[in-house]
Amino acid sequence: DNLVIALHSYEPSHDGDLGFEKGEQLRILEQSGEWWKAQSLTTGQEGFIPFNFVAKA
């Protein structure tokens, strides 16, 4: 599955970004460039995340 774990917390800075906490698990929905579309397994919310803040779970 496309699961990743957050290496750092991220505060959203643009509409459509997904904020998350360090250690949170996310499911990657789309990989494109440096911003990936993801869904939080904690909150169920979707949005874009910086790819370098996460690692394969």
Rank of each mutant, 00 (worst) to 15 (best):
D1N: 11
D1F: 13
D1M: 11
N2H: 12
N2M: 14
N2R: 09
L3G: 02
L3P: 01
L3W: 09
L3I: 14
L3C: 07
V4G: 05
I5M: 07
I5R: 06
I5V: 11
A6D: 00
L7A: 05
H8T: 10
H8C: 15
H8G: 06
H8K: 14
S9L: 05
S9W: 06
S9Q: 07
S9F: 07
Y10W: 12
Y10C: 06
E11N: 12
E11A: 13
E11F: 14
E11K: 14
P12E: 04
S13K: 15
S13P: 06
S13H: 15
S13V: 15
H14L: 08
H14W: 10
H14T: 09
H14M: 10
D15H: 11
D15W: 12
D17E: 15
L18Q: 01
F20G: 00
E21C: 13
E21W: 08
K22T: 06
G23N: 05
G23K: 00
E24A: 06
E24I: 02
Q25W: 15
L26M: 08
L26W: 02
L26H: 00
L26C: 05
L26Q: 01
R27Y: 10
I28E: 00
I28K: 00
I28P: 00
E30F: 11
Q31K: 13
G33V: 03
G33K: 04
G33F: 04
E34L: 14
W35T: 07
W35P: 02
W35R: 14
W35A: 05
W35V: 08
W35F: 11
W36E: 00
W36T: 06
W36I: 09
K37M: 12
A38E: 00
A38P: 00
A38Q: 00
A38I: 07
A38V: 13
S40K: 11
S40Y: 02
L41G: 02
T43G: 03
G44A: 05
Q45T: 06
E46Q: 12
E46C: 14
E46Y: 12
G47S: 01
G47P: 00
G47N: 00
G47C: 06
G47L: 04
G47T: 02
F48N: 08
F48I: 07
I49D: 03
I49L: 04
P50F: 07
P50S: 04
P50N: 06
F51S: 15
F51M: 13
N52E: 11
N52V: 07
N52T: 11
N52L: 08
V54C: 09
V54W: 04
A55C: 14
A55F: 10
A55I: 13
K56I: 13
K56N: 10
K56W: 15
A57K: 10
